[in-house]
Structures are given as C-alpha cells and as structure tokens.
C-alpha cells in the first residue's frame, strides 16, 4: 500500500518536482502553521502563568480561532508531506512520538478552553488557578513536539521503499 502511495504521480510530484510550489511550498506552510498554532498557544499559556497580568484574560479566547485555522493548515500540509515520503515517516518512531505530543498538547489547549474560558462567570484569579498546571504542561509538550518534528530530518532509517 505504502509502495503504491509512494509511486503515485502525486507523491512523485511533491517530492521531485522542480517547481518551487511543490515540496518547498508545502514545508513552508507547515513552518508558518507551526508558528501560528504554537505562537497563539504560547500567548494564552504565558498570560495564564502571569505574564502581562494587567491584560484581561477572557478576550484571549479569540486566539482559538487562529489556532484552529493553523491546526488545519498543519493537518493538510502534514498529510501532503506524508504522501511525499510515507516510508521515511512511518518507519521512524520519532514520527509517532511527534504525533502523540501534538495530540496531547492540542487536547490540553482545548481543555484550557473548556475549563478556563468556558465559564464566563469565573473571576480572573480562579481562571489562572485552573489554567496554571495545564499551561505549564502544554508549553513543555509543544517544545517536545517541535523538537521531535525538527529531529525527523536526522533520525530516519529509511527514505523510501527501496532503501
């Protein structure tokens, strides 16, 4: 199956096309999406941890819209990169580690949305109290996810079906 994906015209186009709008464009979108997704999370997490304490917390909820847009940018560009190099990713344990870290980090961000931003009657100090541990954990997990992603380029054992 993976062999078929790898040999498909689309996969070959992403991988080998001399066009600047194939592989390099997709990987650029993936980097920009990372900046937006993790950057927006970072702002919420830092505020929950007391940075810019004079800033009202509740309006930061709007940043979740940016995070969702960025999340789907990452899913689409990530799937395209996977189609280009299915064997390279799927034979590397680091790839599963990366997906797991992203999954947990994003779930925790959604938990912050429900627990901290979900109830408009909460006072700021209660919001911060509820969000503190979640904020610390998401920051650690995002750092881990970015690192695991960066290391994909250095930890693969196979690049394609033939070797």
């Amino acid at each position: 199956m993976l062999k078929a994906v790898e040999e498909s015209g689309f996969s070959v186009w992403i991988r080998d096309s001399p066009s600047p709008f194939a592989f390099w464009f997709i990987i650029s979108v993936h980097a920009v999406g990372m900046g937006l997704l993790v950057g927006a999370s970072l702002v919420i997490d830092l505020r929950l941890l007391g940075v810019a304490a004079a800033l009202p917390l509740a309006p930061l909820k709007s940043l979740y819209r940016i995070m969702w847009v960025a999340f789907w940018m990452q899913v689409v560009s990530g799937v395209l990169l996977l189609i280009a190099y299915p064997i390279k990713a799927l034979t590397n344990p680091d790839f599963y580690l990366k997906l797991a870290l992203i999954g947990i980090a994003f779930t925790l961000m959604l938990r912050i949305r429900n627990r901290v931003f979900g109830d408009a009657t909460l006072s700021e100090s209660v919001m911060m109290q509820k969000g503190r541990a979640l904020a610390v954990w998401t920051l650690i997990l995002w750092a881990g996810a970015v690192t695991a992603g960066r290391m994909l380029a250095y930890t693969y054992s196979r690049i394609n079906y033939s070797g």
């Binding site: 980097a31 990372m34 900046g35 937006l36 993790v38 950057g39 927006a40 999370s41 970072l42 702002v43 830092l46 995002w142 750092a143 970015v146 690192t147 960066r150 290391m151 380029a153 250095y154």
Partner: peptide
C-alpha cells in the same frame, strides 16, 4: 539539529509575542 530546534523555538516566540 539542536541549533535548528532553538531557531524554531525562537520563531514561535517571535510570531506569538510580536504577532
């Protein structure tokens, strides 16, 4: 690779905080 990783983390700080 570690420097590249730091370069990415720096990028996130810039995009998040300045953005």
């Amino acid at each position: 690779p570690i420097l590249e990783d730091l370069h990415f983390i720096g990028l996130i700080l810039i995009i998040g905080a300045i953005g």
